[in-house]
């Protein structure tokens, strides 16, 4: 699959999400319900998009891994055959030969595991993309995208919550709708749900006006007149506020965790790319020189190559982990990514 085609997949997965997000918000009350439905739909699409991206990165990485392990197996096979000839010529004993044979058996096992992983991840991806058996075979990119040049900064989390989290927007609209439906009109005070734990309520500042509108706000009016007429409605409303507060605090925590994962995965992958893999390649290059100079045997070269190639396999997985973490973060910035 070409880079352009790979981009198309990404685009298909994100296009609808973006168009939904950028759609103008309804201006009047009749459209509030539509906005809630719209928000809920966007969250569902986003969750699917995230799951599909995860599956895609897993499938490409598994494909790359299998390719590397195929090479290791090819080399181990050559080593085992050479060992067999050494034994046949009388230059080696059965012990020397068996060691090489053991390496070959191990390489075969690892390749089988890698191929199994390759099939599993592809199938998962097909499933999420809704591809059925008759549809053309899924062709993946040969390798994962490069790491980005820089780590993106995490903007102010509360600002993100305020601007982006669709699930919170929906919940906020639901709270306003609930208040209207319950006929609660006289707010006694205002609280910011991000400042309240699920079990305690802090006194807000009464002087601040209750901003009407559809921008997400974590300031919610509190109705606790205590009047018998509305006591039941007020209790129901208070429960909704509690749930909203819990969601807002969870969302903040999710974003922080997702960012921590994104940052750590980037550091790990970058270190693999800039230190571990170059070191491994330098070792391989130096060993090749020593082999050419009759300073080490082809078996030494092979044993070391096996180790160095493993470091590339580790690198592939670190890049995969980074892109997965990036996708989780992107999703966490928009909504609750846990379906």
């Amino acid at each position: 699959m070409s880079a352009a085609a790979q981009y198309d997949i990404e685009e298909t997965l994100t296009f609808n999400v973006l168009s939904l997000l950028t759609a103008p918000y309804a201006r009047d009350i009749e459209k509030r319900r539509f906005a809630q439905v719209q928000g809920t739909l966007v969250i569902a699409v986003m969750q699917l998009a995230n799951a599909t991206r995860q599956a895609y990165f897993a499938a490409v990485a598994a494909h790359q891994s299998a390719q590397y392990l195929q090479q290791v197996k090819t080399a181990a096979e050559a080593g085992a055959e050479l060992a067999r000839r050494m034994l046949a010529a009388g230059n080696w004993n059965i012990l020397d030969q068996t060691h090489e044979q053991g390496f070959y058996a191990d390489a075969k096992r690892r390749l089988t595991q890698a191929r199994w992983q390759q099939e599993t991840t592809r199938e998962k991806l097909r499933q999420l993309m809704g591809l059925s058996g008759e549809q053309p075979a899924l062709r993946l990119a040969e390798s994962l995208p490069d790491l980005p040049q820089h780590l993106e900064d995490l903007p102010d989390v509360e600002q993100i919550l305020l601007q982006n989290r669709l699930d919170l927007k929906v919940q906020r609209m639901q709270i306003d709708a609930l208040a209207r439906r319950l006929g609660l009109t006289k707010a006694t005070r205002f609280i910011n749900v991000l400042d309240m734990g699920p079990t305690r309520v802090l006194q807000g500042d009464k002087s601040q006006p209750y901003e009407r509108g559809y921008e997400i706000s974590f300031e919610v009016p509190i109705f606790d007149s205590g009047a018998a007429r509305v006591r039941r409605a007020e209790a129901q409303y208070a429960q909704a506020i509690d749930r909203f507060a819990q969601s807002a605090v969870d969302a903040r925590s999710q974003i922080r965790q997702a960012y921590a994962a994104y940052r750590a995965c980037f550091e790990i992958a970058r270190q693999q790319r800039d230190e571990v893999v170059p070191n491994a390649k330098l070792i391989a290059a130096q060993n090749l020189l020593r082999y050419d100079a009759s300073l080490i045997s082809v078996f030494d070269l092979l044993a070391d190559a096996r180790l160095q190639i493993t470091s590339v396999d580790d690198y592939i997985h670190s890049v995969r982990d980074f892109w997965m973490a990036k996708s989780e973060l992107d999703t966490a910035l928009l909504g609750n990514f846990t379906p």
Binding site: N91, A284, V298, A305
Partner: peptide, 26 residues
């Protein structure tokens, strides 16, 4: 007494190829 050229070429070309590989996609 061991015909090894074909196999050693296979192994050394693996190492050479590996060294020229662009890591994971870059």
């Amino acid at each position: 007494g061991v015909e090894s050229g074909d196999l050693t070429r296979k192994i050394t070309s693996l190492v050479t190829e590996y060294m020229s590989m662009g890591g994971a996609g870059g």
